[in-house]
Amino acid sequence: MSEPLINYLNVEIAQQDACLLRNVNMQVNAGDFLYIIGKVGTGKTSLLKTIYGELSIASGEAEVLGSNIKSIKRKNIPQLRRKLGIIFQDFQLLTDRTVNGNLEFVLRATGWKDKQEIKNRIDEVLEQVGMTNKEDRFPNELSGGEQQRIVIARAILNSPSIILADEPTGNLDAETGRKIVELLHNISRNGASVIMTTHNTQLVKEFPGLVFKCKNNELQDATHEFYNETRSLNKEEHEINESALETTYSQAEFVSEEEADNE
């Protein structure tokens, strides 16, 4: 079995001497789709920040793509980030550039030089996210869902092993958000690991994955608990529907018998 892409063991995350999360134990393998759920302020975003080196860990052991996150030098963080795709809730697209300009900027910044290769790669990712023929649009000419698709295209330009999506549906309507999560699931099926923070448990139910919950300053594995609870609810709803159906049949039979008596 191959080594996990992310391996956190007894990690504590703190900021300004305040503990945000403790006992963080998490492994992420190639192709995993992992949700991090929890209320606002429980540490979901802070956990993602430690993965891409924005926030240091206070204690424990943490490896991301072979790099020791606890001891990584600041000069080596850009190299790590080139192996990651990061999707922010507020898009962070360059407003003075077209879609093509935004994507070309990233490729050139990460060492791409050949114009035809750059064009081909941009065409590939735009097709993958369903945004062909949008390359000449500026961000303000796109809907929120379209902008998020461009952000995803930007994140997968360099074929990252890991995609970090911080509340990618937070600013979108329900149906558009659903399509974004479906797109991310399709990307994970091609081998990339996706870690997505969200408070939308309906999406977690519809598109199953591994589930971790930030609660009481701890990261708890909630996969079995979450889906067992979901199945129990579905079973209960089914039993209620069966009971209602039986009542309907009984009422119908009673009405038929009453009509027969009247005749």
Rank of each mutant, 00 (worst) to 15 (best):
F226Q: 03
Q27I: 05
L172K: 03
L172I: 05
L55W: 06
E253V: 11
E237V: 15
A62W: 00
H238C: 09
I156Q: 02
E259T: 12
I163E: 00
E206M: 04
Q128H: 11
Y52A: 00
R22I: 13
P160G: 01
E257N: 07
Q202L: 09
I72S: 11
M1C: 14
D90W: 01
T132Y: 04
V99A: 01
G145Q: 04
L55V: 09
E229D: 15
K213Y: 04
L20Y: 06
C214D: 07
E135R: 06
G60M: 05
E182R: 01
M196L: 12
Q16Y: 12
E237D: 15
Q128C: 12
Y249I: 10
G66D: 09
A174E: 12
L210Q: 10
A222K: 10
P78S: 05
F88G: 14
Q220Y: 07
I118K: 00
Y8V: 04
P78C: 02
N133H: 10
N158C: 15
S250I: 15
V194H: 01
K179D: 13
I195C: 08
L184F: 03
K73Y: 06
L157G: 06
F138R: 00
V125T: 05
Q202F: 08
A244V: 14
G43Y: 09
R231L: 08
S243V: 11
L80S: 10
I195K: 04
N200G: 06
S143C: 07
V40T: 13
G177S: 03
E124F: 07
V64L: 06
T132M: 10
L5Q: 04
K179H: 13
M26Y: 07
P4F: 14
N140D: 02
V64S: 07
P160T: 04
S188I: 06
Q79R: 14
T247F: 14
S59D: 02
V28E: 02
A222M: 10
T98S: 13
Q15F: 15
L21D: 00
L142M: 04
E141P: 03
G41S: 05
L233I: 13
T197M: 02
I150G: 00
T132L: 13
N120G: 12
A222I: 09
L93Y: 03
E263Q: 09
T176K: 00
T169S: 10
L164W: 02
N228Y: 09
A153I: 00
D32Y: 11
S159D: 15
L184A: 03
L172T: 07
Q202K: 09
V11F: 05
K70L: 13
S2G: 07
A260G: 09
K39N: 14
T110G: 05
T42M: 00
H238W: 06
N29S: 15
I187N: 05
T132N: 09
A30S: 05
T230G: 10
E146I: 02
A155R: 02
L126V: 10
S161M: 14
G111F: 03
K119D: 14
K73T: 08
K215N: 15
T98W: 03
I77L: 14
V255S: 12
E257K: 11
E167C: 08
Q202H: 09
G43I: 12
S188F: 05
W112T: 13
P139M: 07
E246C: 04
K113M: 09
L94R: 09
S159A: 15
A192M: 12
R178M: 13
Y227N: 06
E167W: 03
